[in-house]
Write a protein that binds this DNA or RNA. Structure first.
Lengths: 152, 152
DNA sequence: CGTGAAAAATACTCGCT
DNA sequence: AGCGAGTATTTTTCACG
């Protein structure tokens, strides 16, 4: 990870569909150089993939929330089972296994509040391992690209 | 948003660098058709952009956490000011303005636990509008593509 | 490692249905 | 809207510094 790699990562994070030619031009290197660097970054797993960023409202899911759950017993089997069950639900965008007040944090997106309530009551509360949960409706969200390494 | 649009969104969410040719092949339409559809989806804001998914550990930031904050007074001015200040910090990946027990939820990534502590003490606690906060260290995270619309 | 140039693949345009 | 053929760009390979 030298400066050239960091610059590539920064550019592709901002726009994953940059042509290799344009990327090379911005970096001030030959297209073949940029191409090879990007190939290596993918191979090393630094670049994990490329994803389109979709407007959730356009997919009829304008309501987002975090749902933090307490789960017991907190065994490997229960965690994996719970995680798999949740990720198969269409309402769930992402799930996080955590240490702290909450064992799981779910990021969900639904068409409306009624559907959120339904999810909490019918999907989450139903599960025996769920001791309790707490929801936070998201009003605004800001995601930032991770431009550079933090100094160590 | 007909089925063709949904399929395009699904494919580009999974791999934003699909060639238009391959996309068209998978959809069973002509390349020019796919190209025009994608153009319209971007124009309508359904596709907001394309981003490379980067391994945070490779950028020297293997430790992730959610930090949920209570902020007072919860006025527009304080919210906007707090939000702007946080988003300018390199540790912060994303920030969410919420309703619920927490007013703000921050997604942070740092090189190690020491740096997390430092962030909490020096950056967050320092601020007068912060009444309190609660951190959850993330052990595992799973992000899912949003494949289809939920039925209304 | 990086380069430049050639070959292969792809994007994009446009007249037509 | 969707299509297909033609043209312009781009990607990708590779022999060389």
């Amino acid at each position: 990870m030298d400066e050239l790699d960091s610059a590539i990562v920064a550019h592709l994070q901002a726009d994953a569909r940059l042509t290799n030619r344009e990327l090379a031009r911005r970096l001030g290197v030959a297209p073949s150089t940029a191409l090879e660097r990007v190939r290596l970054l993918r191979e090393r797993g630094v670049i994990r993939g490329y994803h389109a960023d979709i407007d959730l409202a356009a997919l009829n899911r304008p309501v987002e929330a975090f749902v933090a759950c307490r789960v017991r017993p907190l065994s490997r089997a229960v965690i994996d089972n719970f995680k798999a069950a949740l990720n198969s639900l269409p309402e769930v965008l992402a799930s996080y296994v955590c240490a702290g007040d909450d064992d799981f944090i779910l990021h969900v997106a639904v068409p409306d509040l009624e559907r959120l309530h339904e999810f909490l009551i019918d999907r989450l509360s139903e599960r025996r391992e769920v001791l309790g949960f707490r929801s936070s409706i998201i009003f605004e969200s800001t995601r930032k690209p991770v431009f550079a390494e933090l100094p160590s």
